[in-house]
Simulated assay, not measured.
Amino acid sequence: MEFRLLGTVSIDTLSGPLPLGPAKRRSLLAALLLRANTPVSISQLTDALWDDEPPLHARTVIQGHVSRLRALLMGADAEAYEVELTTLGDAYLLRVPESLLDSQRFEELLMLAREQRSATDTVLMLKEALALWQGPPLTGVFAGPPLQAAAHSLEESRLATVEQLAGAYARLGEHNRAAAVLRAEAVAHPMRESLAAALMTALYRSGRQSEALDWFHRTRRLLADELGVDPGRELADAYALILRGEPEADRHPDDVPKAAQLR
């Protein structure tokens, strides 16, 4: 049994995903999983399921969704996995071993990556962490403010991890790989300056200076047109690095010992 937040909110079993039903029930599951092993009050669940004035029967609706979710878990032999949905006064508690929750495994792998001394091992840990993602976080839920904020926080963590992975590749001298990791995200998040700056640096250090400069001017124009602002410190520093020129820019990934290259 696996609980997923990093993509479509789901409960996967050996026989397939459990039929969670409507978005409100999926949202309730997400709210419980985001605070797994911690009591979540009826009030907090109400805020997660309705972004305006909740209906007078909101408590009854929540109780109905909890009852159905509990039945689904029992039918999937959740107790064998030490999973339990319990009532604690005016709150509900979903007990889930951290190893069964993808967002917890993601955080654990990030911690392990930070502890590695070898950039090669860091790359392996970060790639394993990012492989847990199956799409935008909390897909399929009711997008009220609390769950929107949680999804944003999870996505920010993913993007930061992509940047860390590119940094680890850079420490190995694999700047083309760093650029490849960053490009798709920079396209998807064109006004995230940290991504643009990292991509520019990776392109420059892999000998693609014109592409790096093009990316700077593209981002600068976008910031001016969409936000009316100039590039921030990080983007400006990356641009200045390219203009100054560094011997390291001439280093090519093929110059790195083969044993250090990750395939």
Rank of each mutant, 00 (worst) to 15 (best):
R183I: 09
V187D: 15
L243W: 03
L223D: 07
Q148L: 14
A236H: 07
T38L: 01
L213H: 09
S15F: 10
L28I: 11
P190I: 15
R251Q: 04
L126H: 02
S15V: 12
L172I: 11
R59P: 00
R192M: 12
L130E: 10
T86F: 06
L235W: 00
E163S: 14
S10G: 00
E98N: 13
A80M: 07
A150G: 06
G21S: 08
R244Q: 00
A80I: 05
H189I: 11
E211R: 07
W215Y: 05
G21N: 06
R70V: 07
V123T: 11
L262S: 07
V40G: 01
G207I: 00
M125S: 01
R95I: 02
R35M: 01
Y204G: 01
G245L: 03
R177V: 07
D214M: 12
A150C: 00
T201K: 09
A160D: 15
L109F: 13
M200G: 02
A78N: 01
P247K: 03
R70A: 12
A76R: 10
V141C: 02
A260I: 04
V187W: 02
R70Q: 12
A197N: 05
Y169R: 08
R263M: 00
D90Q: 07
G7N: 09
P146W: 04
A196S: 15
A259P: 03
G64R: 15
L147N: 01
A196Q: 14
G7M: 06
P136H: 09
S67D: 12
A36I: 04
E211A: 12
L100F: 04
L88F: 02
M111K: 14
R183C: 11
L94W: 12
P146N: 00
L88T: 06
A186P: 06
M74H: 10
A91Y: 01
Q44C: 13
P39W: 05
R192T: 14
L110I: 11
G228Y: 05
G89V: 05
L147R: 05
T120M: 05
Q116H: 01
M1S: 10
S10V: 05
I242F: 03
A143N: 00
